[in-house]
Design a protein around this nucleic acid. Structure first.
Lengths: 94, 94
DNA sequence: GTCAAGGTAAGACTTGAATCTTACCTTTGG
DNA sequence: CCAAAGGTAAGATTCAAGTCTTACCTTGAC
């Protein structure tokens, strides 16, 4: 879990939006990739969630029919204390 | 001073190195662009320091002969508490 | 069994970021 | 005055990131 990779992952507004949504939800919340309503194609969704997973920010649990994203809140907080709340409390920029 | 811009600025390893060096130095430390010994051309230096300035992370004070970079530590800490220490305490990767 | 929904994979496309070279400006120091 | 040092500006290049389309796979529901 490297700082550079994490910052690069969070630099994208769509990915930051995903992390912010998960960070504001109760810990352990599972959400499908499609449930965020991001304005991109399915293939782009796959790309963004892969970047988040590689950076260590989320896990993806197989739910048979779909694949849910879960924030790795504790791991992130342990390594980069305060980072999550910065993202969570940042006003969205529509 | 927007989170997205700040994260994008800090995603680059060279720029992160500059911010880390300034953050570890005493507050208000002034350093010329060239003093960091980054392995790029002068023109690339100008580019990187402009990005840092646009993101609001540094000021550049004119010293006649040269132009020194100064970390905007208080402003950063006020808006993004904890962010600076994440960058400052991150182990360099080379 | 069939079909729709959710994801993934591979490939192409496009745009932006980082880099360099060259040329120029400004200031300090002989 | 002249030269060197530190930066800036403009333009070209190169490469990665984000995006799409198409095709395919898997699971659950009918």
């Amino acid at each position: 879990m490297e700082l550079g990779e994490v910052l690069a992952a969070l630099a994208d507004p769509l990915r930051r939006q995903v992390i912010a949504a998960l960070a504001r939800a109760p810990a352990g919340t599972e959400r499908t990739c499609a449930s965020f309503g991001l304005p991109v194609s399915k293939a782009s969704l796959t790309h963004h969630f892969r970047v988040l997973r590689f950076a260590g920010l989320i896990r993806q649990v197989d739910r048979g029919n779909s694949r849910a994203a879960v924030l790795r809140g504790d791991d992130i907080e342990a390594r980069f204390p305060g980072l999550l709340s910065l993202v969570a409390n940042d006003p969205a920029k529509p």
